Amino acid sequence: DETGKELVLVLYDYQEKSPREVTIKKGDILTLLNSTNKDWWKIEVNDRQGFVPAAYLKKLD
């Protein structure tokens, strides 16, 4: 059920640097789980959840 889920576009590649982070690729469109922290957003990638720098993402309307 995708209702109410926010999507984000990945602006730059990011390689995870800790187990709490996930790797993302430029151009991916992913589900945003939590954006309350202005610097690190929690997203879902391939059934994995983790954090990436918010500056690497853009919210889609």
Rank of each mutant, 00 (worst) to 15 (best):
D1M: 12
E2F: 13
E2H: 15
E2W: 12
E2K: 14
T3C: 14
T3K: 14
G4F: 14
K5Y: 14
K5L: 12
E6H: 14
L7K: 14
L7G: 03
V8D: 00
L9Y: 10
V10F: 01
V10S: 04
L11V: 06
L11D: 01
L11M: 08
L11N: 03
L11F: 02
L11Q: 04
D13Y: 04
D13T: 05
Y14S: 01
Y14T: 01
Q15F: 15
E16C: 10
E16V: 07
E16H: 07
K17E: 07
K17W: 04
S18K: 08
S18H: 10
S18V: 04
S18Y: 07
P19T: 10
P19V: 09
E21Y: 04
E21T: 06
E21Q: 11
E21I: 02
E21G: 10
V22S: 03
V22E: 01
V22L: 09
T23P: 03
T23F: 03
T23C: 04
I24N: 00
K25W: 13
K25R: 12
K26L: 04
K26W: 04
K26D: 03
K26Y: 05
D28K: 06
D28L: 09
D28C: 09
I29D: 00
I29H: 04
I29E: 03
I29N: 02
I29W: 04
T31A: 12
L32Q: 00
L32N: 01
L33Q: 04
L33D: 01
L33F: 04
L33T: 05
N34D: 15
N34K: 07
N34I: 07
N34C: 11
S35Y: 07
S35H: 12
T36D: 15
N37V: 05
N37M: 08
N37Q: 08
N37L: 08
N37F: 08
N37I: 04
K38P: 15
K38L: 08
D39A: 10
D39T: 13
D39W: 15
D39K: 13
W40R: 03
W41G: 00
K42I: 13
K42Y: 15
K42A: 08
I43H: 00
I43T: 02
I43V: 15
I43Y: 00
E44Q: 12
E44A: 10
V45I: 13
V45D: 08
V45Y: 13
N46R: 12
N46G: 15
N46F: 13
D47R: 09
D47I: 07
D47A: 09
R48P: 00
R48M: 07
R48Q: 08
Q49D: 07
Q49K: 10
Q49I: 11
G50N: 02
G50H: 05
G50A: 07
G50W: 05
G50S: 03
F51Q: 04
V52L: 01
P53F: 03
P53L: 03
P53C: 04
A54G: 05
A54H: 03
A54M: 04
A55K: 14
Y56M: 10
Y56S: 12
L57P: 02
L57K: 00
L57Q: 00
K58N: 05
K58A: 10
K59S: 05
L60Y: 08
L60P: 03
L60E: 04
D61E: 12
D61T: 14
